Amino acid sequence: MTGALFEITFMVAAPVWLLMIFAPRWRHTTRLASSPLTVLPVLTLWAVMAAPVFPELWAAVSSPDVDTFRELTSLANGAGAVWAQIIAWDLLLGQWIFLESRRLGVHPLVTGPLLVLTILLSPLGLVVFLVIRGSRRPGSRSARPSYDNVGLPSNP
């Protein structure tokens, strides 16, 4: 059962990721990405996997050390709960990157691969995004390019 929940965890987050990457200009994508409620299905799976190992989980987070954490993740439900927590926070981070990219006028062909990097290695995705974000200023001409309906820059 835990193995199936582990597998399902990313699948319930995947539709939001897919919309942000492949349908960034669809009006429903921005509305969905603006909601923190997108993580509730993942957090529900977290709760189901965390409940049976809550004493071990609490020990690992309240007095963290590598051996206690290793013991937690050696349990199927422990590893599943940690995975679900990672997926939930990565999704929230991806939504923030998506929304900030839109606000700053970062082209979807830049944001899409950046979101894929964030799915796979969120610390690297965040660092790359922070560099991009630091190079842009909201409201500046370079931060708000206009695009034609196929996503290519149009002539000003």
Rank of each mutant, 00 (worst) to 15 (best):
G125M: 08
A88K: 02
F98A: 05
R133G: 01
V42Q: 04
L124K: 01
G3Q: 14
P64K: 01
M49Q: 08
A47D: 01
E56V: 09
Q85N: 10
S63Y: 07
T73P: 00
M11C: 09
L99F: 04
V131M: 09
I87C: 08
T9C: 14
G3R: 15
A13R: 10
P36T: 14
A23K: 11
A60Q: 00
A13V: 11
W46F: 15
V12H: 03
P153E: 10
G94R: 05
D90W: 07
P123V: 07
N155H: 11
A59W: 04
P138W: 09
A51N: 07
L37C: 06
L121K: 10
E7W: 14
F69A: 05
W83A: 05
E7L: 15
R133P: 02
A13Y: 11
P36G: 15
G125I: 03
L130Y: 09
S35E: 10
R141D: 11
R141L: 13
T44R: 00
V12L: 04
L109C: 00
A47R: 07
S34K: 12
S62T: 13
V128C: 07
H107S: 13
I97C: 06
P123E: 05
F129D: 04
S142N: 03
N155W: 13
A88F: 04
M11A: 15
F6Q: 11
S146L: 14
Q95W: 04
W89D: 05
M20I: 10
P123Q: 05
F10R: 14
E56I: 03
I87T: 13
R141G: 05
V39P: 01
A59I: 00
L40G: 01
L121M: 10
L115M: 06
R102G: 12
A14C: 01
F98R: 05
P24F: 13
W26D: 10
T44E: 00
T68F: 01
P145H: 07
D148G: 12
G134R: 11
A51T: 12
L45T: 01
L45G: 02
F6N: 12
S142G: 03
E7V: 15
R27L: 14
G112Y: 04
A47E: 02
G78T: 06
R25T: 11
F10H: 13
S63A: 14
V131D: 00
A50E: 12
V128G: 00
